[in-house]
Design a protein around this nucleic acid. Structure first.
Length: 942
RNA sequence: GCCGGAGUGGCGGAAUGGCAGACGCGACGGACUCAAAAUCCGUUGCCCGCAAGGGCGUGUGGGUUCAAGUCCCACCUCCGGCACCA
């Protein structure tokens, strides 16, 4: 008697590693240098290798792209499907600070874990192309791209970036000498230094980009952020705002993501208008003279200091202006403040400068402000308009000054209410359409479009006509001009952290070792600039970067007899992820960042899948860099990512939560207070009653039911390693695809994983005799020809799975394969010509099992490179179809008719059906709708 | 407040304007078994009915249509994002 009888069960723990090694050894998924025939670049958003390892959200998108890649390969497409690691960033550095290990060590360890886990899931990456953004060979080219940005200025007329050497130098600058020319160039570069208020986060010890500050606190960690003036590297992304917005049109991206980017760029159109200031504006003669001058000279490019220039999107409300408001940081503030108001105004601005962004943008705080004591002259009416200072006007947007029109702007209205300013109505809702517009209300506020009133010569015009006409008039009179503004700000590109790319920049030092202000970019040959060895990675509590503590050997450099100090800021984490998709195509090239032939052949990315959290940051930055590289001739396409798909979030398992009252007993969900404690309730103690779930033992008590985001603190995190141990990688892959649409948010269900596992078990038993003593083909497997019915089932499955892969509808593709297995399981004869194509269909989804079954069926591996089956039209048609018959739109019977029956045949067959005949008896048939292949509907009377 | 997306059985979810609930989970029943697990087969939207059959059903209220989960209007709820950008 054998101790343990061999049971040839489906055992992923043995077959999965077996095939992973096989693929590795045979380089099954290696892609060619250049595509042959049709190409597909299928890309995942590469992960940040955190210390926690992969979570179940990662394999969702990765499995989707893997299925698409595998199916495309089987269809003969040249596929490139790479993977790498976005490995710079704060967590590695914080770990380093906590433990004292250098970030590179922990990063490499984490990468090893991620690589192992990704391989464990059987993704068909070409691992020869793996890159990490922290590799010196990668950093080198990230720094090189920074040099390209540094060497580029934006030609507004041509709307493109050009080499700095081609920048026209104004005569007066050229006359001022070499240093002035250099300074002028530095000002125009796409990578420039600026002394500007920045977002300094004391807790993180670094400056953050606007995009990384959410509601006044850091996106990462939620630490407070304060404004601080600091010399920083900036990237001139605003120069590309217009193209970044316009060229979204050409992309096959979710509309929601395009919308987010559009909102972030925040393009608005309107007009700039000049208001004459004192002393010239103090009398009518001065005003008349100024107007005459303007009519002759036109609208000056830069606002001269005898005017207050404002930006408005609603020049049609010019006659409703009751005051002007400037930002506290406005350059004319001091001059506009009268002596008697100085103390009050200065105090206000001082207070405003100490307010955090959070305080300043807190709508609940209401409006604050202070009168400057002076006025300017309305360019159209000649009336004086008082000038106020208020922090709801932002110095960094438009001209830093606005015309306040309380009757037609929410914020101006609130401001006017607070300070008792006049409200003058100049727009009324257009009559005739929705007469109950804003004006029927108690408040005179109306922000909609309509018809102008009390607006001088423009009275009676519709808003749009008014804007066009007044725009033309202002421009002709030299008082205004059309203007475009963007919410997008230049990208603050330097960080005071250790674990990032050093800048390829040197600062010239004078004899005393002090910086002269002259900046020198390194040559390509000097790259990469390595990170220095450091024992202490901590950021300081001042914005002095850790790299400034590097030893002198790193810090000081001699060039051409001059002494330089290296730039000690580092680049933000986004830098590396801005261009990794290019490096994958040519990862080992040490001559160039990418070979142009390779770039032309593989770019753009055909399918890019990842989370929606990168909607504005990564995806906007990447597009910006790509456009600069395009303008400078380094890449061939204006956009990097053609088709973008966002996978949805995977939530934890559904939970029922009841609330225990502090006093004892239960409180219904929705009525609980602070004192009541939430408790997890097992599903079997809960039942549904009407709209709500209640406790089975106390049906009056409502219970909350929902799935939560996975988090360590909630304890509902699902670990992929554990799922692979319990069910196998193929089950994990298949389950994540079966849960629902790729883009939907959906809760995890361990029972659901069991469900797909049992489907894979059934696939196994279709081929293998599980009750035999050794691994044997099931006795039903034969070499007969499949029956017509079997071929119909097969080809329908082929057609559905093929179409669903194209539309990324993996859940319904899997459902169809399940139907096929349900059909095939009871068959006494299972012909190989039926099973073999099915195994091919299964291969992209459950590749390990498919390889094993393929081999068992006597085929030469790998199925991963077998030909994709083709659905034959003849097997997709039916001879007869069952047609529903309705009377008055209600289903009453079904009839079986030939598939090609025309409307007349259909109607006759339906009318002959006994039940229908009975229902129609004695009724007058008003109308018959007969749709061949679809249905019959009788409309009757009486 | 503004902008997206979504509301379908106990649960996840299917449905080119044309048979609502494919497929899976769960539940229930049967076969196999000494028994259990596993497996295989079946039932499973709700209500009335022994049954045949009938009625009601896709967040709510209207509308278009022979026909609406799907299209239109208004509203409710949930999720996500943005939020003084003039």
């Amino acid at each position: 008697m054998s101790q343990s009888r061999f049971m040839p069960k489906y055992d992923p723990a043995t077959i999965e590693p077996k095939w992973q090694s096989w693929w590795d050894e045979h380089d099954t998924f290696r892609s060619p240098r250049l595509p042959v025939g049709e190409k597909a670049y299928i890309l995942d958003m590469f992960p940040y290798p955190s210390g926690d390892g992969l979570h179940v959200g990662h394999p969702e998108g990765y499995t989707a792209t893997d299925i698409v890649s595998r199916a495309a390969r089987m269809r003969g497409v040249s596929v490139i499907h790479p993977m790498g690691f976005d490995a710079f960033g704060l967590p590695a550095e914080e770990h380093a600070i906590r433990t004292g290990t250098p970030p590179r060590e922990s990063t490499e360890r984490n990468i090893a874990t991620f690589r192992r886990q990704l391989k464990m899931l059987g993704f068909s990456y070409d691992w020869h192309r793996e890159v990490a953004t922290t590799d010196p060979g990668y950093v080198r080219w990230t720094q090189w791209i920074f040099l390209v940005l540094h060497d580029t200025w934006f030609d507004r007329d041509a709307q493109r970036g050009r080499p700095i050497a081609e920048l026209p130098i104004p005569a007066e600058v050229a006359a001022a000498g070499e240093q002035a020319v250099a300074a002028y160039r530095d000002e125009q570069r796409l990578a420039y230094q600026s002394e500007a208020p920045v977002n300094w986060c004391p807790a993180l010890g670094t400056v953050l980009a606007n995009e990384e500050v959410i509601g006044g606190v850091s996106e990462r960690g939620g630490h407070p952020v304060v404004r601080l003036p600091l010399r920083q590297w900036m990237l001139r992304i605003t120069a590309y705002a217009d193209r970044l917005e316009r060229e979204l049109d050409s992309l096959d991206w979710p509309t929601s993501i395009k919308k987010l980017q559009r909102d972030w760029i925040g393009r608005s159109t309107g007009a700039e208008v000049d208001f004459l200031l004192p002393p010239a504006g103090d009398d009518a003669a001065g005003f008349a003279a100024w107007k005459q001058h303007r009519a002759a000279s036109g609208f000056p490019e830069q606002a001269p200091d005898n005017v207050l220039r404002i930006y408005t999107t609603r020049p049609d409300t010019l006659y409703g202006v009751t005051c002007m408001v400037i930002a506290p940081e406005h350059p004319l503030r001091a001059r506009l403040t009268t002596a008697d108001r100085t103390a009050e105004v200065e105090a206000y601005c001082e207070a405003a400068s100490h307010k955090s962004d959070l305080d300043r943008t807190d709508l609940a705080e209401g409006k604050t402000g202070v009168f400057t004591g002076s006025s300017c002259i309305h360019p159209l009416t000649g009336e004086p308009v008082p000038i106020w200072v208020a922090d709801y006007v932002l110095a960094s947007y438009g001209t830093g000054a606005i015309m306040s029109v309380p009757a037609h702007d929410d914020r101006d209205y609130e401001f006017a209410q607070t300070f008792g300013l006049k409200v003058v109505t100049v727009v009324e809702p257009a009559t005739g359409e929705g007469g109950a517009g804003g004006n029927g209300n108690a408040t005179p506020l109306f922000t909609g479009r309509g018809r102008a009133v009390a607006s001088g010569p423009y009275t009676g015009l519709e808003t749009d006509a008014f804007i066009t006409q007044v725009g033309g008039d202002l421009q002709a009179a030299g008082l205004g001009r059309p203007a475009v503004n963007y919410k997008l700000r230049d990208w603050l590109f330097s960080r005071q952290r250790f674990w990032g790319e050093p800048f390829p920049i040197l600062h010239e030092l004078d004899a005393a070792g002090e910086p002269t202000g002259v900046v020198r970019a390194l040559d390509q040959a000097d790259l990469p600039v390595p990170l220095p060895e450091l024992s202490d990675f901590r950021p300081g509590n001042t914005p002095d970067p850790p790299l400034s503590r590097a030893d002198d050997g790193w810090l000081y450099v001699e060039r051409d007899g001059k002494r330089y100090r290296r730039e000690t800021n580092t680049m933000p984490q986004w830098a590396g992820s801005c261009w990794y998709y290019l490096r994958f195509l040519d990862p080992a090239n040490d001559e160039r960042f990418i070979d142009p032939d390779i770039e032309r052949a593989w770019m753009p990315v055909d399918l890019y899948v990842g989370g929606a959290e990168h909607a504005v940051l990564h995806l906007l930055y990447s597009r910006f860099w790509h456009k600069v590289l395009y303008d400078r001739g380094h890449v061939s396409s204006p956009e990097p990512f053609g088709r973008l798909v966002n996978q949805g979030m995977i939530l934890g398992e559904m939970e029922f939560t009841g609330y225990r009252a502090a006093a004892g007993g239960w409180v219904s969900a929705g009525q609980q207070g602070e004192a009541d404690t939430p408790m997890k309730i097992p599903a079997e103690q809960v039942e549904k009653q009407g709209e709500h779930f209640v406790l089975r033992d106390a049906p009056k008590v409502r219970v909350e039911s929902r799935a939560y985001k996975m988090s360590k603190s909630r304890g509902n995190v699902v670990n992929p390693d554990q799922v692979v141990r319990d069910f196998g990688a193929d089950s994990l892959r298949l389950y994540e695809m079966f849960m629902g649409p790729l883009e939907a948010t959906k809760p995890w269900s361990t029972a659901g994983v069991g469900g797909v596992r049992s489907f894979l078990d059934r696939c196994w038993r279709l081929v293998v005799d599980e009750r035999a003593d050794e691994l044997t083909i099931a006795p039903q497997v034969c070499d007969e020809q499949p029956t017509d019915e079997q071929l119909r089932q097969l080809h329908r499955t082929i057609a559905k799975v093929t179409a669903d892969i194209d539309s990324l509808s993996f859940n319904t593709a899997i459902a169809k394969m399940m139907e096929f297995v349900n059909f095939a399981t009871p068959l006494e004869q299972r012909p190989r010509p039926l099973l073999i194509p099915f195994v091919k269909l299964l291969a992209p989804f459950a590749p390990h099992l498919a390889e094993e079954l393929w081999e068992l069926l006597g085929q030469a591996p790998p199925v991963s490179l077998a030909d994709w089956p083709v659905a034959e039209e003849q097997w997709l048609r039916d001879d007869t179809v069952e047609i529903p018959v309705q009377v008055q739109g209600k289903l009453r019977a079904r009839v079986i008719v030939p598939a090609d029956a025309d409307a007349g045949t259909l109607e006759a067959a339906a009318a002959a059906e006994p039940k229908i005949a009975a229902l129609l008896a004695g009724k007058q048939i008003v109308k018959v709708v007969a749709v061949p292949g679809r249905l019959v509907n009788f409309v009757v009377k009486g």
